[in-house]
Nucleic acid binder design. Structure first.
Lengths: 241, 241
DNA sequence: CGTTACGTTGAAGTATTTCAACACTCGTGG
DNA sequence: CCACGAGTGTTGAAATACTTCAACGTAACG
């Protein structure tokens, strides 16, 4: 425990597994201590919601572990998942009144939560944090825009291939940051078929059929419903390209 | 028509029509003068490209007048338009090496261009600018995510209704900022049918048929191919909701 | 061990695409 | 001024990808 800790409380940030990847990465010990004081950790069960679309945007957060989904709904209930949040990702809408989307945990997750007002005050006083947030937001915008190509111009086969590759690479980055950079071909889907459908803009049946087709063609192998092994990465990449 | 000579010390920013809405809004006179020195104005003809997807990201820019499109392509040539840029919008990818999308003028446009490196240096020294850029980027991310709902979960009818309302409101904001806030129902489409298709993730034929249907149903009226008058705003809003 | 949620499969229906032909608009040159 | 042609937009008919509806499996859980 640092001698400088002005609060005498436990400094979670010091031991935080995403300390070097999240937006807090560039902060010095003193700043971290301050940030630690305004944040707190929160555990979310699968299915638990952190933010509701349309509600006042009270929280922002960093993902420490787990996977969460960002989603929005049409008035008639049709849902569209806007993105997934992995460890070190930032959640919430600073400098905005209402949350433009809902955030729900897909797997058991831990997040590092701040009152939006506290966070905004801290950010405005600490340019480095704001800069990190800007870089991350720009990156997220790029990622989101790439997803528009998928939603607007790909067919079901291409969509699922793209998603599987994306999940594979994100899973690695999130888990094995230290084990060298080999992207393993085995991973667990953090979401149900319905949720996959809501990500890809398809129906559950179409997704299911596509899984079956990939299995029959030997592109993937599955043990249970959620354990995927990529068998022909090249072929998937061809489809996704 | 070449851009005016940047060395002649004229301060374009002073008289800039988007001075109070673009990211430069919060800067003081001194800062504006500095920014003025590193930027220059450039006129773009319809169809002219400012940035190419995949190329080194050399420029960033503010839109002064006109409408531009951001787009990306699949390897086989299928195009998806990622967004439109109206006056006061920011273009380009600061803090990134390559441009993740192409930027092309739809109408005759004027942009205020900066070398990315110059702009980044300026931004890091002037927190207020960076803050404005962050707010704008967060807003753009929200807008982009809302568009995902359209691409993933709406049918052709709903898509076109949404686009028409969006263009109407954006056109107003861009043109009549001072004429009170009445949203006029008459506007000009700044893009071709093919481009509309590329925005909505449809084919040109489907777009055309949908226009015809809206005309037959009296929801809109058209004079020529690009002059739209909204006749039943309620009905369009029902579809878009 | 049955109940319930989740996933798969089949058959029919539908929205959108694809292919093909035709119409309009606009600028150019005869 | 009209004819021409290219680009752009519209319409129809056929093909198809995806959805919808419905039934049936399978895994998960008390």
């Amino acid at each position: 425990m640092q001698a400088e800790d002005p609060t005498n409380e436990i400094n979670f940030c010091q031991a935080c597994s995403v300390r070097n990847r999240a937006i807090c990465a560039d902060l010095d010990d003193h700043e971290i201590a301050l940030l630690n004081k305004i944040g707190r950790r929160r555990r979310l069960a699968p299915g638990e919601t952190l933010l509701w679309e349309g509600d006042e945007a009270v929280f922002v957060a960093n993902v420490v572990s787990g996977v969460l989904k960002l989603s929005t709904q049409k008035s008639d209930g049709r849902e569209q998942i806007l993105g997934l949040a992995y460890p070190s990702d930032f959640l919430g809408r600073p400098f905005g009144e209402v949350s433009p989307y809902s955030v729900e945990a897909l797997s058991e997750s831990i997040v590092c939560v701040f009152q939006r007002s506290d966070f905004e005050r801290f950010a405005e006083e600490h340019g480095r944090l704001e800069h990190k947030l800007l870089e991350r937001t720009l990156g997220e915008l790029d990622r989101t825009r790439r997803w528009m190509l998928l939603l607007g111009r790909m067919n079901a086969e291409e969509k699922l291939a793209t998603l599987l590759l994306e999940i594979a690479s994100r899973t690695v980055l999130a888990t094995c940051e230290n084990t060298g950079w080999k992207v393993p071909d085995e991973f667990e889907l953090p979401m149900s078929r319905q949720q996959i459908a809501d990500i890809l803009g398809l129906t559950i049946e179409t997704v299911s059929r596509q899984f079956t087709k990939f299995r029959e063609e030997g592109l993937i192998e599955m043990r249970g419903r959620r354990d995927v092994t990529i068998r022909k990465r090249d072929a998937l990449e061809m489809l996704a390209a």
